[in-house]
């Protein structure tokens, strides 16, 4: 189980990395934490000619708070986000989700950008970004573009990133909202059978499911059925019913489509029901 041969450069800047990508977009791969890419290489599921290491680029590092947005560098590791005070204060959903991502020795290298660019259908962070209404900041040969999370995840292991683009950072609007997270995984740190990252502001509920289909996705109809204003059990039941139209039928050896839908409804109830009671404290951020 040894990787096929490839060449390696450590990029000195985002511009250099983009130039490398542009020179051979399909033979070149960015290497961030390597926690998804290196297993694939060792298993010879992927055989790029060149790896461009972006892990140490200062342009991808750091968390900054600007007015009403939190900007998180794509190069931030899972471990750093788990303990960052800005995350705990303004986006605790990220840390809550990260506690379920793999194990300490993987979180120390795996990055936010790598996880989002990899777009594993069962990964937690894409759903978290949907729930937080994040915007992806992408740099390519023709400059910078901003894409909403809802437009970023396009399919199984597929995103709106072009082969010569780099995810630089993402921005999360700081809002007064509740958030909640739940997933069902067979073992601690495993990819989930089904998971939910949810937020609720005064005027919108975002229910982002993962492992329920080819990509993380917002359950729009269920969110619509929840509506706005005071929650009650009837609305949650209606949302659970509506969920059938949101989740695509997705079978795998762990769970049939009907089991997934059932479990998704269980998670929805478990995450949202406590919010009926306004006095129960779940994270409210601003």
């Amino acid at each position: 189980m040894k990787s096929a041969a490839f060449d390696y450069v450590r990029a000195g800047s985002v511009a250099e990395a983009i130039a490398r990508l542009a020179a051979d977009p399909f033979g070149t791969k960015l290497l961030a934490g390597g926690q998804s890419l290196l297993p694939a290489l060792n298993l010879r599921l992927s055989a790029p000619a060149l790896l461009v290491d972006i892990a140490r680029l200062p342009e991808l590092a750091g968390i900054t708070l600007t007015g009403t947005t939190l900007r998180i560098g794509a190069g931030c590791t899972h471990a750093s986000l788990l303990t960052a005070p800005e995350i705990a204060r303004h986006a605790p959903l990220i840390a809550e989700a990260l506690a379920h991502v793999a194990h300490p020795a993987i979180r120390s290298r795996g990055t936010l950008g790598g996880s989002l660019a990899n777009a594993d259908p069962a990964a937690e962070l894409p759903a978290v970004m949907l729930a937080l209404d994040a915007t992806m900041i992408i740099e390519g040969p023709s400059g910078t573009r901003h894409i909403k999370a809802t437009d970023f995840f396009t399919g199984m292991f597929e995103t709106a990133l072009a082969a010569d683009e780099i995810l630089i950072a993402l921005e999360i609007p700081i809002r007064t909202q509740r958030s909640g997270f739940a997933e069902l995984a067979r073992r601690h740190g495993d990819y989930a059978i089904i998971g939910l990252a949810a937020t609720m502001t005064a005027d919108a509920t975002r229910l982002a499911f993962f492992a329920g289909g080819p990509t993380a996705q917002l359950a729009q109809r269920a969110a619509g059925a929840l509506g706005t204003g005071p929650l009650n059990h009837e609305r949650i039941a209606a949302a659970c019913t509506a969920l059938a139209q949101d989740l695509p039928a997705h079978d795998d050896p762990e769970a049939s489509a009907s089991m997934r839908l059932h479990l998704a409804r269980v998670l929805l109830r478990r995450v949202i029901t406590p919010w009926i009671n306004p006095s129960i404290r779940t994270p409210i951020t601003a």
């Binding site: 390696y8 450590r10 290497l31 390597g34 926690q35 290196l38 297993p39 060792n42 790896l51 290491d53 892990a55 471990a79 300490p104 020795a105 993987i106 120390s108 290298r109």
Partner: peptide, 16 residues
């Protein structure tokens, strides 16, 4: 341990 943090050495390249 790499720079003080635990890592999987099968998921780090020697060049990294």
């Amino acid at each position: 341990r790499l720079d003080g943090a635990i890592v999987r050495s099968c998921l780090v390249l020697a060049v990294q």
